[in-house]
Nucleic acid binder design. Sequence first.
DNA 1: TCAATAGTGTCTGTTAGACATTATGGA
DNA 2: TCCATAATGTCTAACAGACACTATTGA
Lengths: 210, 210
Amino acid sequence: MLVTPLDRHLAVLLVRAPDGALERWALPWSLSERSDATLEDTAVRVARSALPSAPVWLEQTGAFADGRRHPGDVDLSVAFVGAVPVGTLSAPGEDAAWFPVSELQPLAPRQRAIVSAAVESVRLRLDYAPVAFRLLPPTFTLSDLQRVYEILIGHRLHKASFRRALHGASLVEATDEWRSEGRGRPAQLFRHAPKRRRARRRGVRFDLLP
Amino acid sequence: MLVTPLDRHLAVLLVRAPDGALERWALPWSLSERSDATLEDTAVRVARSALPSAPVWLEQTGAFADGRRHPGDVDLSVAFVGAVPVGTLSAPGEDAAWFPVSELQPLAPRQRAIVSAAVESVRLRLDYAPVAFRLLPPTFTLSDLQRVYEILIGHRLHKASFRRALHGASLVEATDEWRSEGRGRPAQLFRHAPKRRRARRRGVRFDLLP
DNA sequence: TCAATAGTGTCTGTTAGACATTATGGA
DNA sequence: TCCATAATGTCTAACAGACACTATTGA
């Protein structure tokens, strides 16, 4: 399952289900080839079949087996989620398209479960893996980055605090380029350049669901 | 894979590998029965085969397929991690025992990967799922709870801050029982009784690995 | 009585969020 | 010139961590 930021929302890549299936759209998938290909190899191959380029970040979401209808009547599906930089077009033909997760096309039950779990998994890993940076091109403005974080965590962030925290974590490095988009002052471009592991000890937090 | 707190460390339940395998110990496992059993059903069944009671929390870690040696020569293993309250004995016979994760018995490569991923997964979910409470009996002292958190996040916590945060999150409820263990003032017993979802907005954090 | 642990109040440095201000371009 | 956005400084309330203290038991 491939995700990308699209217009202030997270979007998922769906492909047209091959010939007359009941569902019009489905997640890209394939049967696992035997031999010594790892699960991740297979996931990369599936991703490349629907995209002009491979995703820049890929992680397993889990195995899914319950639910009645599933692509190809397989017993078990192993789902991966991959990040694709903003603005990446889907494959040339009209056989693939991005859909916001909030207004997906009807999917088979197992695929709906996969989408939920994968989005959840991306959100969970946001603080521990460079997912946000993989959803952006190599250079980006801090407003771009903040927008991606807001999409993933689902609420607005305070600009000054965001930048302060970012600076404190030494995660980005300024380039000497600036980009002007429409009105307003041009923004400086940054690149992802993590320096050191922040020894973040401070903070006992309980965000448990009730 | 089953975990429990054991003597200030997280411990994993291993069982003696059936007859003459090279490894003496292994994670409990079984082939998936066909029919309509879900993956979780199978995981519960495996857990119950090695424990006097079912684990009180269970979650899928993921699918594992790489690595040469794996139990029973299966192509793919779906791993689950389950929490077992502190002090639970392993199954009656001498065929199962708890081992601290830091000093495990030699395991097959795939099983080592599963243990690492499962422990990591428990740590990741600590703030979002009631794992810590599932590693304790229904009532517990706040020192017990703090000890579990310290085991899972890997470092000591500040007592007053821990209790303040706990109180703020309305996660526990005092009982009118007290327990005296050896010397020292007896501790009040609490139970897990989450009240409401804390609207935790404060906090932009970047704990990204470099 | 001493030792050990539980539980709490106060202080202080850190910091998230609010607000305001300047900077800089496009319309 | 307005207006929109970027970038940054200052203030304040919240809060994590330190410390100290009281409370209450067993040895």
